[in-house]
Amino acid sequence: MKAESTILEGKLVSIGYTKSNSTNILAESLSFQLKKGKLTCLLGPNGVGKSTLVKTILGQIPSLSGDISFLNKNINHYPAKSLAQNISVVLTDKITGGNLTVQQLVSLGRTPFTNWLGKLTPEDNKIILDALKATKTYYLKDQFISEISDGQLQKVMIARALAQDGNLIILDEPTAHLDLVNRYEIMHLLRDITQEQGKSILIVTHDLDIAIETADELWIMQCGSPLLCGTPEDLILSGGINQLLPNEQLIYDPGLGKIRPTQISSYPNIQGPDHIKQWLKLALQKNHIQLPDDLKIEIKVSPLTFNLTKNQSTQVADNIEKTIQLIQQLI
């Protein structure tokens, strides 16, 4: 049962580059199991070897030791064409094929399946149209790719990977340099693809928040540590997620659901509702303000006021900016 639910498995894989007699090992003893039909996010700092791991999985560079098997068969034993029929990618490379229409670009995904001339069968065309519809880019199909936005292009690239119709899609930073809305849309699109079409997806990303929100599984890669795998929820509760933050000054706060400084002033002199207090504290922290013991702040809602009391005299501000200015005058 376990063998069936795993599509890609790595056992004690070492990755890196060999260059005339010297080897540069980037990461050692990586073991992982990519679960079938799940969305997995690979996180880690720059330079830790995420892209190299992806290249190794794709068989573009050899692993230095260990095995990577895809559907229980060593990845290096697949001929190039059959690997292309099984794994498709979305890379960070810039696409400049200016004279291609969106539909032609997506059609290129059928390359491993077509004859030597690249002739598309009616079945190929159906797969292409389905991929366009699944990524909600059907309306763009006759536009040239130089005429669409970055976010649209990224969806089209995902459509192309879908049209390649393998079991596994690997995406290298698909949401980098996209705006917030597009990031969410693309990650949710990928999530829908895993759930509706049963494809397995591996995403290399730096977007921790969105990864936690959408991924079924996280792989955390950190220099000198083995690959840490698990559901995002479990990794948060066990504190494993902090492996992403080697810096002692930062910590992932399970309560807040985000990263915050380890040392946080509690500001006991502030009184008021938590959801407002939180933002005032943030502003104080940003300005490196330590409140003196004799300065008391009381927050009142409706209307929103901040009452600052020091030596029996009270001053009132109606927003945080003014509050900070008053505090700076008082201390």
Binding site: L58, Q60, A80, K81, L83, A84, Q85, I87, S88, V89, L91, D93, K94, I95, T96, G97, L100, L105, L108, G109, T111, P112, Q164
Partner: peptide
């Protein structure tokens, strides 16, 4: 047209 790395990923 999509560059060398994509071409390789498509079995070229």
């Amino acid at each position: 047209l999509m560059g060398e790395r994509y071409a390789i990923s498509m079995g070229v």
